[in-house]
């Protein structure tokens, strides 16, 4: 369930070098958490709902990617051994899986959350837990109870050369090369486009936004679609990077991602990215210096400490409950 961090292989002969290596692993992992965290934070920013089902959308996305890789080899004769085909295949997955997750997320919003918009806050939250259970069950029936192996398509060759002091593999590079552009694109989208502006307005005050002629329902739908698409992209990368998927991975990774969102200041887009990176770092440094089995506890202790001492998160500003 918990993604392995691959820190066991780190050479621990030199202090600084070890630290940098852990940090590198942590930042790469963190970029992944950040992608999932963005979905939580955007939805929370707009309708103040902790979308518990988000992690499970992510999980179903990686199951779909796994199924597609098999199906492409079987029905299209796709050669997953050739570098060019791998690149093209991953590109295809990065289109299809996010589309699927976006559609799933929007459907969930329309069917389950939308009728509860005016209900007390507990109602959508509990429904989200319910949706999470349903999706988890779908994953269980689809992929079985055991961990599934995800094909290891991307090479583990070091980009820095085999003799370099630090190891940064093609796989690590792939994570960074996909997540960073997505985050930049998202930031530009929210900052510059009309729809992005509408999203920011709705997040600030739905009623005022509506009075200004913004179709709030459409904006909420778009937010769910965007969040789902990000989770879908993260699902593909996660599968290729970690190589193990299971029906329970949505819960655990969803919690990490949510922690990242809260850490950065929930509702805050750069905050989610920062939070993701910090969580990634905390996990890898924790695994390296404290012990692998304590990392999860460490992440939650950080979460509790942040909420108690700085509930607005690192970058957040909204602290007061709207009375």
């Amino acid at each position: 369930m918990t993604p392995p961090l691959l820190v066991a292989a780190v050479d621990t002969s030199s202090g600084w070098q070890t630290f940098l290596q852990y940090a590198l692993i942590g930042l790469t992992n963190g970029a992944l958490f950040a992608l999932v965290a963005l979905g939580y934070t955007m939805v929370y920013g707009i309708i103040e709902l902790i979308n518990f089902a988000h992690g499970d959308v992510f999980m179903l996305g990686s199951f779909l990617a796994l199924a597609l890789i098999g199906a492409m080899a079987k029905y299209l004769g796709w050669n997953w051994g050739e570098p060019a085909m791998i690149g093209l295949g991953i590109g295809l997955l990065l289109v299809v899986v996010p589309l699927f997750c976006a559609a799933l997320n929007v459907t969930i919003d329309r069917v389950v959350y939308k009728p509860l918009r005016r209900a007390p806050k507990l109602a959508p939250l509990v429904s989200a837990i319910g949706v999470s259970f349903v999706l988890m069950n779908v994953g269980l029936l689809w992929g079985g109870a055991a961990d599934r192996h995800f094909p290891d398509l991307v090479s583990r060759q070091s980009v820095l050369g085999e003799t370099a002091a630090l190891s940064f593999t093609v796989k690590d590079l792939m994570v960074v090369a996909i997540t960073v552009p997505i985050m930049i694109a998202l930031t530009l989208f929210v900052k510059t486009t009309r729809l992005g502006k509408a999203m920011r307005a709705t997040a600030q005050d739905p009623l005022a936004a509506q009075l200004m002629g913004i179709n709030v329902d459409r904006v909420i739908g778009a937010t769910f679609a965007l969040g789902g698409a990000l989770a879908g992209a993260a699902a593909v990368i996660y599968g290729l990077y970690i190589n193990t998927v299971s029906y329970q991975m949505g819960f655990q990774n969803g919690l990490y991602a949510f922690t990242a969102a809260v850490l950065g200041g929930i509702g805050n887009i750069p905050g989610a990215v920062l939070g993701g990176l910090v969580i990634g770092l905390a996990r890898s440094l924790g695994s390296g210096y404290v012990g692998e089995r304590w990392t999860s506890a460490l992440v939650f202790v950080i979460l509790i400490a942040i909420l108690v001492f700085r509930p607005a998160g690192l970058l957040g500003s909204r602290t007061r409950d709207k009375v």
Binding site: G130, S132, N137
Partner: peptide
């Protein structure tokens, strides 16, 4: 079972 619990929650809330 998870499906049934989940649907029960969703339907109750609705």
């Amino acid at each position: 079972k998870l499906m049934i619990f989940g649907l029960a929650l969703i339907l109750m809330m609705r």
